Simulated assay, not measured.
Amino acid sequence: MKKIAELTRYGLHIYFKGYKFIMPLVVIIVYQYTMYTIMPVGIVDSFVMASYLVFFVLVWAGLSVSADENPVMEQIQMLRVRSSLCYYISRSAVLAVLGLLVSAVCVLFPVIQNVLNHKALFLRPLTAYDVLNAFVLVAGCSFAGGALGSLLHPRVMEDRKLAVVLTVLLSVLTVVRTGLVQEIPFLRYMAWILPPVDRIAYIYGNVDEFRILQTGLIFVALVGYGAVLSVIKSCICQKRKF
């Protein structure tokens, strides 16, 4: 566990030492100020939109983290900890921590804004129950997004331009999956390969209250999907070596 924590800390240090985190941060800041400039807004609607934003931001982060991995440094770290399993778990942990940080920002910002605006930011009073559900949804999307973004690792797909194009395509298809299946029914037999992010809008698109059971099921599905993708990527990387 200590080895995983140290590798995760080192991975986060490398990520924040560079400049690739700046643009995602700018996107988040611009979104937050744009979203909550006009008052009041719906609680459920605003957090559903935040879930989609975080999904795309973590896909972006997953691509960046994978692209920045240096084969020499990877081998050195594996030799140092003498465990490829610890190394690959730490890579997933880096994205998980990034996802939790982004989720916390996207959930806490409107909470703080609501307090500063004398609790007039939302159409109804914001409760701790709302905040809990919102964080769980957003965090689930962050895990799935990070895993999807890191799937086409340089050792999984050497052509980086193609990897970026395919990742973007999969991300967009994820969001519009429900609509596509309705228009082209046979796609439902292939749509299962995409993360269930669209279920959030399907369940919460026309309601004003969160339901913890539905939120929990979506979270489990998103985290499970992210875990499967992480295992697949790690197995391919381990098999292909360097």
Results as ranks from 00 to 15, higher is better:
Met1Asn: 08
Ile4Met: 02
Glu6Trp: 09
Glu6Asn: 11
Thr8Glu: 09
Thr8Ile: 09
Thr8Gly: 09
Arg9Trp: 10
Tyr10Gly: 05
Leu12Ala: 01
Tyr15Met: 02
Phe16Asn: 06
Lys17Gln: 10
Gly18Ala: 08
Lys20Phe: 11
Phe21Trp: 15
Met23Lys: 04
Pro24Phe: 05
Pro24Leu: 08
Ile29Leu: 15
Val30Tyr: 07
Tyr33Gln: 13
Met35Leu: 12
Met35Arg: 15
Ile38Asp: 12
Met39Arg: 15
Val41Arg: 14
Val41Asp: 01
Val44Glu: 01
Val44Trp: 01
Asp45Ala: 12
Ser46Pro: 12
Phe47Arg: 03
Val54His: 01
Phe56Gln: 02
Val57Asp: 04
Ala61Arg: 04
Gly62Arg: 04
Ser64Thr: 10
Ser64Leu: 13
Val65Trp: 06
Asn70His: 10
Asn70Ala: 01
Pro71Cys: 03
Glu74Gln: 12
Ile76Ser: 09
Leu79Tyr: 08
Leu79Met: 14
Arg82Met: 11
Cys86Ile: 00
Tyr87Arg: 04
Ser90Pro: 01
Arg91Tyr: 05
Ser92Gln: 05
Ala93Asp: 06
Ala93Ser: 15
Ala96Asp: 02
Leu100Tyr: 07
Leu101Trp: 04
Leu108Pro: 00
Leu108Ser: 11
Phe109Ile: 14
Pro110Lys: 07
Val111Asn: 07
Ile112Tyr: 06
Ile112Leu: 14
Asn114Val: 08
Leu116Pro: 05
His118Gly: 11
His118Tyr: 13
Leu121Tyr: 06
Arg124Cys: 00
Pro125Val: 02
Thr127Pro: 04
Tyr129His: 15
Asp130Ser: 09
Leu132Val: 14
Leu132Ser: 11
Val138Leu: 10
Val138Met: 01
Val138Ile: 15
Val138Asp: 01
Cys141Gly: 09
Cys141Val: 06
Ser142Ala: 15
Phe143Cys: 04
Ala144Lys: 06
Gly146Asp: 03
Ala147Val: 04
Ser150Ile: 04
Ser150Thr: 00
Ser150Ala: 14
Leu152Gly: 07
Val156Tyr: 05
Glu158Ile: 10
Arg160Gln: 13
Val165Thr: 12
Val168Ile: 14
Leu169Ala: 13
Leu170Ser: 14
Val172Met: 10
Thr174Asn: 02
Thr174Trp: 05
Thr174Pro: 03
Arg177Ile: 02
Thr178Met: 10
Thr178Ser: 13
Leu180Glu: 00
Glu183Cys: 09
Ile184Thr: 06
Pro185Gln: 08
Phe186Met: 11
Leu187Asp: 10
Tyr189Gly: 06
Trp192Asn: 08
Pro196Gly: 02
Val197His: 06
Arg199Val: 11
Arg199Asn: 12
Tyr202Asn: 12
Ile203Ala: 08
Gly205Asp: 07
Asn206Gln: 14
Ile212Glu: 03
Gln214Asn: 15
Phe219Cys: 05
Val220Asp: 01
Val220Ile: 14
Gly224Ser: 12
Ala227Glu: 07
Val228Arg: 00
Val228Ser: 08
Val228Gln: 08
Leu229Asn: 02
Lys239Glu: 12
Lys239Ser: 13
Lys241Val: 11
